[in-house]
């Protein structure tokens, strides 16, 4: 999973499709990166994510909780219009910032 760490900010680039099938591995890899980097801020770059369903909401809100527990924050950037509609509908933007 491509990622960069600049200061306290961990940016992870998600790619491919995020559904129930791919969610478990993505979740595991994200949690390992969060743990190892000790970042205070997680930015998920979604520009190469070609599909997401409600499984992705669970993954994102789960990582939000992880970050919040460490006093940190989470933001997403460049969601496709399909993904953005799902975020809008589910109220994700009430707690997750869109960059």
């Amino acid at each position: 999973m491509r990622h960069t760490l600049r200061g306290q900010t961990l940016t992870v680039y998600l790619s491919g499709e995020l559904d129930h099938h791919s969610a478990s591995q993505i979740r595991q890899e994200l949690d390992a990166l969060i743990r190892d980097s000790r970042a205070r801020r997680l930015v998920l770059d979604l520009s190469s994510l070609t599909f997401m369903d409600s499984s992705g909401i669970g993954v994102i809100l789960g990582r939000y909780n992880q970050m919040a527990r460490r006093g940190g924050s989470l933001a997403v950037r460049k969601p496709s219009s399909q993904i953005n509609r799902i975020f809008d509908l589910s109220g994700v933007y009430q707690i997750v910032e869109r960059l």
Binding site: A23, R27, D53, S54, S55, I57, G58, V59, L61, G62, R85, I86, L89, S90
Partner: peptide, 21 residues
């Protein structure tokens, strides 16, 4: 919306709402 029987699996309860919309 937001009803799920499986919060333990990190489900968000938005599936039917997505289908509907």
């Amino acid at each position: 919306p937001l009803f799920t029987s499986r919060p333990d699996l990190e489900r968000s309860g938005m599936g039917f709402a997505v289908m509907e919309s």
